[in-house]
Design a protein around this nucleic acid. Structure first.
Lengths: 345, 345
DNA sequence: CTGAAAGCGCTTACAG
DNA sequence: CTGAAAGCGCTTACAG
């Protein structure tokens, strides 16, 4: 039924070895012979069986990707960056999630042992860093897309400039004359949260810090509490766009004008940030490039390149109406200031 | 290095055949022998090589999924539904996109021929239905997640109740006393667009129809033009949430109040719909269930079940502030009216 | 430049 | 209940 290398060899009047050699362009093959073999391959529509090639070669030309959730607003961009890069290199992408607890872990580890893929890209699922480290120790090439700033040193990772991102938000607010900012953070144990807060406070010290959890509700509550307490503030820096949206809603409900009374800056630049009222000024994470970069690092490693260090990709302040440029101003839409950072080659 | 079935056989003092039999629990094996083999497997940490199993069995226990883009707002939910279902069945998911034109097509077709996966789930990339049909004709099991209402009859598909969804939007507006609706459609050639429009007009006839393209801009322009022309209207039904967001923005910019002057209803219920100003009433597509259902259909087919017919999943009207319930009202948040439809078992 | 043969790690008739 | 052997479709020393 299906066309095999033996069929090609027979039709071309050569051995399977020779066919294999022309396919993989390795070893010397007579020009005429090669042309004949290629013609037969084309006419028969032969395509090597990936399973057989994998078995014989001991590698699958496939990379795995493990993510905690596929429905997070920035995950699509990361995935797109990964898929594009991996496909362009002729690899396949096997996708796994970790959303069913122990059961998922079990099944996933099995897949690893089954050698279903050659290397792994991971957006760290909660509390699984130790498992990932174990896999890495057993020889599986791993690259982490380090969205929460875990900074592991067991394997290479891709992060963004969380510290500088926080600082850029502070500089922007400062330039606009704001001096009493409220910071709505994510969970305290995350490295990215500490970095964003640290960077911000270096430029614009404040003790108005509400620990949130990246949800809309936590952003809303933080603002409501501060308003209820009567504490004065003139701006908000939220550690993600979702909680910034919550802050916007609470401010609007309380009749405060954004940005006239209170300026608001978020973090991430998810698609929603363009559609809040008013549109959100935010620190953009280069999510697609993070995916691309991580994939390139992993592919490089699989290709034998020496293990890459951690790569830091720059955030970028995207200015919209919720915190426009100061007085003298310029066009408000689309202007941006790049944060300095080490660039991936 | 790696543990093989031969190592297990040797350690257990049996043949590879017997080990294979206990792994796959097929054929009669003595209880004691089986127990011994299982003990050895556990102690050695043996996991069968997926590549070898695939080669020997002629199937890969993997399904492919082809999508036009991973960054569309509802794609994450579809993917999550697919991945959860596929993983639970012990299958792997190989992900492909079609965003680089002819090059992608080529590479993808090759993967198919390489037998990298046993069946295919597809969210139809533009102008590729004929290619997919060709693959299906060659014997590849295919299930379509038919987001644009193409209704192919070459293979089973999962759709939502576009006609009834449009009708439910109309009934809601009608009950609120609206009689001059503007409909902002998607591209006319899409079946889902014709269905949504048809269902809507059966309940609430109107000739105010602006052909859009599912972008925010097209929604904004449609409203701006109508306002500029001075044509009176009291409501908007947009064929997706993004263009509804554009309509909201144009109305706000023109100083029209939503919902007091103009009520707005969208379609999809993407995450953003909760965060527009005001939050958007919309016809919810059961995207995650569409993914789950398509995956179940494909897995069933691979498992030898007879080919399933097309399955239609119900939309659901989600009522928020942009078009609240009429006068006597009830709680505005989260109430919903299920559209009748054929349910997948 | 080319080919015969072994091997990758499994499964599956076939025979006992 | 169990095993020897062939076979899945490739690649890769090895020999010429």
């Amino acid at each position: 039924m299906r066309v095999t290398i033996a069929d090609v060899a027979r039709a071309a009047g050569v051995s399977k070895t020779t066919v294999s050699r022309v396919i993989n362009t390795k070893g010397e093959v007579d020009g005429g012979t090669a042309a004949r073999v290629r013609a037969v391959i084309a006419s028969l529509g032969y395509v090597p069986s990936s399973g057989a090639v994998g078995l014989a070669r001991g590698s699958s030309r496939t990379v795995g990707m493990l993510v905690p959730s596929l429905t997070w607003p920035w995950m699509g961009e990361v995935l797109q960056g990964v898929v594009d890069t991996v496909e362009a290199a002729g690899y396949g992408l096997l996708l796994f999630t970790f959303n069913r607890g122990a059961d998922s872990v079990e099944r996933f580890t099995t897949q690893v042992s089954a050698r279903a893929f050659d290397g792994l890209l991971v957006v760290e699922p909660e509390n699984t860093l130790d498992k990932i480290i174990a896999l890495s120790d057993r020889g599986l090439p791993v690259v982490l897309i380090d969205d929460r700033g875990s900074h592991p040193d067991e394997f290479p990772s891709v992060v963004t400039t969380n510290h500088e991102g926080g600082a850029s938000a502070a500089r922007h607010l400062l330039a606009d004359g704001r001096s009493r900012p409220l910071v709505i953070t994510g969970p305290e144990q995350f490295g990215c949260v500490r970095d964003r807060l640290g960077g911000f406070r270096e430029i614009l010290p404040t003790d108005l810090v509400a620990v949130g959890d990246f949800t809309e509700l936590s952003g809303r509550l933080a603002v409501e509490r501060l308003l209820a307490a009567g504490t004065p503030f003139d701006s908000v820096f939220a550690h993600n766009d979702i909680s910034a949206a919550g802050a916007l809603r609470a401010l609007r409900a309380a009749g405060r004008s954004v940005p006239d009374d209170i300026a608001v800056v978020g973090f991430d630049d998810i698609p929603m940030a363009q559609h809040t009222e008013p549109p959100l000024t935010t620190v953009r994470q280069p999510t697609r490039r993070m995916g691309e970069t991580a994939a390139l690092m992993l592919l490089g490693h699989l290709g034998g390149a020496t293990a890459q260090e951690t790569v830091v990709l720059p955030t970028e302040l995207v200015v919209r109406q919720s915190a426009p440029l100061a007085a003298n101003s310029g066009p408000v839409n689309g202007s941006s200031a790049s944060a300095s950072a080490h660039r991936f080659p």
